[in-house]
Structures are given as C-alpha cells and as structure tokens.
Amino acid sequence: MPSAAFLTRIAALALLSATAFTAHAQDRQLVISDWGYSNEFLIPNLFEPFEQEHDVKIVLETGNAPDRLNRLRIRGGVDLIYLTDVFSQQGIDSESFAPIDPALLSNFDDLYEPAKNPQGDYGPAVTFGQYGIIYDTAKVDETITSWEDLWRPEFSRAIAMPGFNTTSGPLTVLMAAKRVGVDAFQDPDAAFASMAELEPNILKTYNSGSELTNLFTTGEVYIGLVQDFAFPAIKAAIPTVEWAEVSEGNFRMMNTLNIAARSENVELAHAFIDWQLSQKAQKDGAVALRTGPVNKAVELSDEEAAQVIYGEEQVMGLQSSPYRDLLDNRADWETRWNAIFGQ
C-alpha cells in the first residue's frame, strides 16, 4: 500500500499538469475550416506566420463543403470558414455568418471590384478560380474553341463533368442553355433538352478532384469540365492536357472567407482575413497553389501568371456564376438532371 507521502506527491503532480492544461487552453485559439486539399503548403506559409505574429493557436477543420458548413451551423466552435461562393451563399441564407467590417481590413481597397463584397456585407473573395474545359490535345484533332464543341459526336463517352451537387455542376446547364439561345432560368425545358443531347458524350459525372484525375490518368476520358485547382495534378500526369480557349469564356469561381456568426474572436478573425488578403499571402497562393490573386497589387512573372487568373483583363473576362438563381432553382433542376443522367 503506497505511503501517504507518495500519494500526496502524485496528487500534486496531477494537479499541476491539470493546471498546465488549462493554462494552455487559455492560450488564444482560432478555429479555421478549409478543404484540407492544400494544407501541406498553407500550414507553414499561411497559418504558422499568423500564429507567431498574433500569439494564437490555429486549429484546422477540414472536409468537403456541405459537411463543414453544416458543422459550423449545427455544432459551432468554428471562427472562420473557407467556402466556394455557392456554399457561402447558403451559409449567408441560413444566417450562419457575421458581417464583415471593411474598415478593419487594411488590404480591402487593393482588391479587384468583384472580390470586394461579392455577397453583400459578408466575407470577401480570397481567390479567383475558373471552371472550364480541359482536354488532351494529343487525342483531339480539331481544337476546342467553344463550349458548344462539347456536343461534337466524335466525343462520345469521352467527357467527365462534375455532378449536380458540386459547386460547378449546374454551370454546365447554363452553357447548354446558351448553346440553344435561351436563358436557363427562364426556359429550363429547352436548357435540359440541350443537356440531354450532351448525355451521350458524358462518360461519368464526378464529385471530387481526385476522381477526375483518376479518370484522366487511366485514359477513361480525355475531356474534362473542371475547376482550376484540379488542373495541376492532371497536367503533371498527362503533359498534353491543356485548357480550351473558349469564346464564351470560362466561369469565375470565387472562394470566400467568412466569419461564423457565433465566433467569439471577431477581431482576430478580421486580422486573419486581412492577412489572407495581403500581397504576400495572395502571391504565395498564386505561385504555389495556382489560385488567382484577388489583390490587384500582386505582381507575377509571365510564367507564374500563365497558370492563374491574373490581371484586370482576365478577371473581368470571366463569366460570373449566378449562384443566387442556381440556389433558387436547385430542387427543380435536380429532378431534371436526374431524369437525364440518372438512367
């Protein structure tokens, strides 16, 4: 039976470690939710500098968008969340975010116009991306110059496109509508009839970037409708893959950064957003992650610029994505989509 003295010593140690823990817990914490895709780069280059600067511990939550948004909404405990514009709109609609005060953001004025308040008083865009067509030039004789080329009969079962429940999925419908000269929201019948004509060319719809990469590398498809973050991996595997320069232009995708309505670190959160919008962070992202910078002051070399959306001309040359209308029509469009692609 251990002696009383021994027991007291153990108890003291336990108490001390407990206090050490709680003391640790009193260090400031900022919980940030992102995709997890690029954290290998972001942790040393984006998050750690901020931690050191502001003496705060950043805790990362990762996953796909619907998952993370729901967690924020239902469970809380998140301060900042990166989402694509479609999903941040859903967050706004469900009153999950706190409004942003531009006055607290020193870099705000340096942003391109579309990035400033893309969704009202809420989070700014922090990267530009695009949704467009990539294809293996070695397998296609006639270059692709328009979205309408996707309907070419020789592309039977050669295309992979995002599924309906992804950010960019419904955008294809807009192009299908444009092809037959209608507005997809006004005349969904015609738009989806046009989609039905595309169906024979679609081998598979995909839900994740890695799935598409796989389809390309195994040779199952040689044309993909894709967002730019997936491009580098595919290009590395198949060097002859290139973006198609389409006359209608690609779609502008924006990633936004928002503050959770229930966050208790609003000031610190603003500081982080400002850091994300800074020239340094934006340039790092552009070079390493190929994300288009939203900060006008960022300068890239020609080589670096070729990889991303860069410069006024390019930024303004993209079509914007009408995610408000898309959200409103979602249920109806899903039924129509399933009727064509669920067979």
């Binding site: 599924g163 429940n165 692609f341 067979q343």
Partner: peptide, 16 residues
C-alpha cells in the same frame, strides 16, 4: 451516377 442504387442514393443524400 447513371447506375444509382438505394445504397449510393443514400450516400448521395447523406454525405453530399
């Protein structure tokens, strides 16, 4: 997607 079954539809609804 073309061969959706109850199991994959469940996954679609729940996770995606």
């Amino acid at each position: 997607e073309r061969q959706m079954t109850l199991a994959t539809l469940l996954h679609e609804k729940a996770i995606i």
